[in-house]
Amino acid sequence: EVYKVKIKIERVLPNGEKVEEEITIEVEGMSEEELLALARELAAEPGVRIKEIEIEKLPP
């Protein structure tokens, strides 16, 4: 199964400015739980906050 994972994050820059970013990846052969863990890892940097995680199962 192939999933499209869209992660919206908010990053706080050293000057205090907040910037929103969106990361989209396609992943194959992982469960939804593994995808959530991967998304959290991607956003685990200091000053980064996850705003939204969207997981979509793509048709075969």
Rank of each mutant, 00 (worst) to 15 (best):
E1M: 13
E1V: 12
V2L: 15
Y3S: 03
Y3I: 06
Y3D: 01
V5H: 00
V5I: 11
V5S: 00
V5M: 15
I7C: 02
K8D: 01
K8R: 08
I9C: 01
E10A: 02
E10N: 02
R11Q: 02
V12C: 06
L13P: 01
L13H: 05
L13G: 07
L13R: 09
P14D: 12
N15I: 01
N15E: 14
N15L: 03
N15Y: 03
N15M: 04
G16A: 02
G16W: 02
G16L: 05
G16C: 04
E17V: 07
K18Y: 13
V19H: 09
V19E: 09
V19Y: 06
E20F: 03
E20C: 11
E21C: 09
E21K: 04
E21Q: 12
E22K: 06
T24E: 06
T24M: 14
T24H: 14
T24W: 05
I25E: 01
E26Q: 13
E26D: 07
E26A: 08
V27T: 07
V27P: 01
E28I: 14
M30P: 06
M30T: 13
E32M: 15
E32F: 07
L35D: 00
L35P: 02
L35S: 08
L36Y: 10
L36W: 13
L36G: 07
L36A: 05
A37G: 13
A37R: 13
A37Y: 12
A37E: 08
L38D: 01
L38S: 04
A39W: 08
A39N: 01
R40K: 12
R40H: 05
E41A: 14
L42I: 09
A43E: 09
A44P: 03
A44R: 07
E45Y: 06
E45Q: 05
P46H: 11
P46F: 09
G47D: 14
G47S: 05
V48A: 04
R49Y: 13
K51Y: 10
K51H: 04
E52Q: 09
E52Y: 10
E52A: 11
E52S: 11
E52F: 12
E52T: 13
I53Y: 03
E54Y: 14
E54S: 13
I55W: 10
I55Y: 05
I55H: 01
E56G: 04
K57H: 07
L58N: 05
L58T: 06
L58C: 15
P59I: 15
P59D: 10
P59H: 08
P60T: 09
P60L: 05
P60A: 08
P60G: 10
